[in-house]
Simulated assay, not measured.
Amino acid sequence: MSSRTVVLQTCLHASRRVDDRLVALSGIEYVTLNGDGLITSLDNRMVTADSRL
């Protein structure tokens, strides 16, 4: 059976800095599943709101 990669957005955090700027951080997971649906690889990546993917 073949494997497949699934991309999930797992969380989003937002807050204000002392200078009143908004700060946001998002977590993205890249999950590779085997033919049985079991996870064979998991990669977590945190990105800021102004990051380019």
Rank of each mutant, 00 (worst) to 15 (best):
40 T>S: 02
11 C>K: 12
16 R>H: 09
43 D>S: 08
5 T>P: 06
34 N>F: 01
33 L>F: 04
25 L>M: 06
26 S>W: 00
31 V>W: 01
45 R>A: 08
25 L>K: 04
38 L>F: 01
42 L>Y: 11
27 G>Y: 00
43 D>V: 07
21 R>W: 02
48 T>G: 15
16 R>S: 03
51 S>A: 12
26 S>P: 00
4 R>I: 07
21 R>S: 13
6 V>N: 13
24 A>K: 05
29 E>K: 10
19 D>T: 06
27 G>N: 07
43 D>A: 06
13 H>V: 11
1 M>Y: 07
49 A>I: 05
52 R>T: 13
50 D>R: 07
17 R>I: 05
9 Q>E: 14
10 T>R: 11
46 M>G: 05
51 S>F: 06
5 T>Q: 15
9 Q>G: 10
38 L>A: 10
19 D>K: 05
30 Y>K: 07
40 T>E: 07
15 S>C: 08
24 A>S: 06
29 E>I: 02
24 A>I: 08
4 R>Y: 14
15 S>R: 09
23 V>W: 02
25 L>E: 03
3 S>C: 10
27 G>S: 10
52 R>F: 14
20 D>A: 13
28 I>V: 11
52 R>H: 10
42 L>H: 12
52 R>Q: 10
51 S>C: 06
46 M>D: 14
28 I>F: 01
31 V>E: 04
52 R>E: 11
51 S>N: 10
7 V>G: 09
6 V>T: 12
32 T>W: 02
43 D>G: 02
28 I>L: 03
32 T>R: 13
33 L>D: 03
6 V>F: 08
19 D>E: 11
25 L>N: 01
46 M>L: 15
35 G>R: 04
45 R>F: 06
1 M>H: 06
1 M>C: 03
43 D>I: 07
28 I>K: 04
29 E>N: 08
26 S>A: 09
33 L>K: 00
1 M>E: 04
24 A>T: 09
13 H>G: 04
7 V>R: 15
51 S>K: 02
21 R>L: 07
19 D>G: 06
34 N>Q: 00
4 R>P: 05
6 V>I: 15
38 L>T: 05
49 A>Q: 09
49 A>Y: 00
43 D>F: 03
1 M>A: 05
37 G>E: 01
38 L>R: 05
47 V>F: 15
